[in-house]
Amino acid sequence: MSKRILAAAFGAAFAFVATSAMAGTLDEVKKKGFVTCGVSQGLAGFSLPDDKGEWTGFDVDFCRSIAAAIFNDAKKVKFTPLSSQARFTALQSGEVDLLSRNTTWTMGRDTSLGLMFAGTTYYDGQGFMVKKSLNVKSALELSGASVCTQTGTTTEQNLADYFRSKNMKYEVVSFEKQADVDKAYESGRCDVYTTDQSGLYAVRLTLANPDDHVILPEIISKEPLALTVRQGDDVWFSVVKWVYFATVNAEELGVTSKNADEMLKSTNPEIQRLVGATDKFGEGIGLTNAWAYQAIKLVGNYGEIFERNLGPSTRLKIARGVNALWKNGGLQYGPPIR
């Protein structure tokens, strides 16, 4: 809603104008006793409050891992749902400490928006969803269609590039809130829904008759969805980045939430460094040496987080695909902890 955009925009402007440079985020987080994490406003599998009002999802779990690494308590997170439009101003103004909010890592955002991307938690790409009854088999048949999407996204830019470069006509109908996009698509205001493919799977579940809609085979972009922090705070950047890498390394080394305690006694030097049995890597990033052990014990390794929220046993049934570990042919790769 316009009021929200305005509020966020003024918040950002005000932060630029009224506050002096932000003190270290890690220190502030420790002082206030919780992490403020910007998540999406409701996307099944990624960030959604469950029936008890607890936030759940893939994006949510990375916030919890970070809280677990800092506080040894995965509950010390305050979730702030943000629209795509408002997310960057909320981060810049200090309203949140990080974004774990299906945010695509792009060069423009990385260099001129004052943001830094701390690691790609999910490799995605933009897709299209249409009603089965339209009998469309490929995105190339979409000339003349109305396309619904969200404002403030890479999605609306990719869409423009794709249709214009293919010389296809289209009409874009975009809203700030995803709920409004869903409504417009379901009412028939648009023929096509476009967003990150993972988002399409999530949205389809919430439609009245999910089986009436198909996701087309074309993927028109690269959407590396990454954890996002403010530029200029290297300590906090390292914390966020290495908590994520720790979850990936833990999967590779077979350390899980269930066996974390046994792993404390492991003789494998790599595991010893990860769980903090040897060396002082935690202290190096301003945490205790049990940082990674806590994150894995309380929230799980990358594979566990994926399976729990998105994998074949969930409603979303997303395959690991490119998000498999590098040694299984995927792209998830944690630099060594040493």
Binding site: M1, V17, F88, T89, S174
Partner: peptide, 26 residues
Amino acid sequence: SLAVAIGYPDLVYVGGTVLNQSGQAI
């Protein structure tokens, strides 16, 4: 300017998108 709520591309809507992409809030 309430147009944003229903997806009509008025000045506030377009400005919001420009702000989001360029980061030039002020």
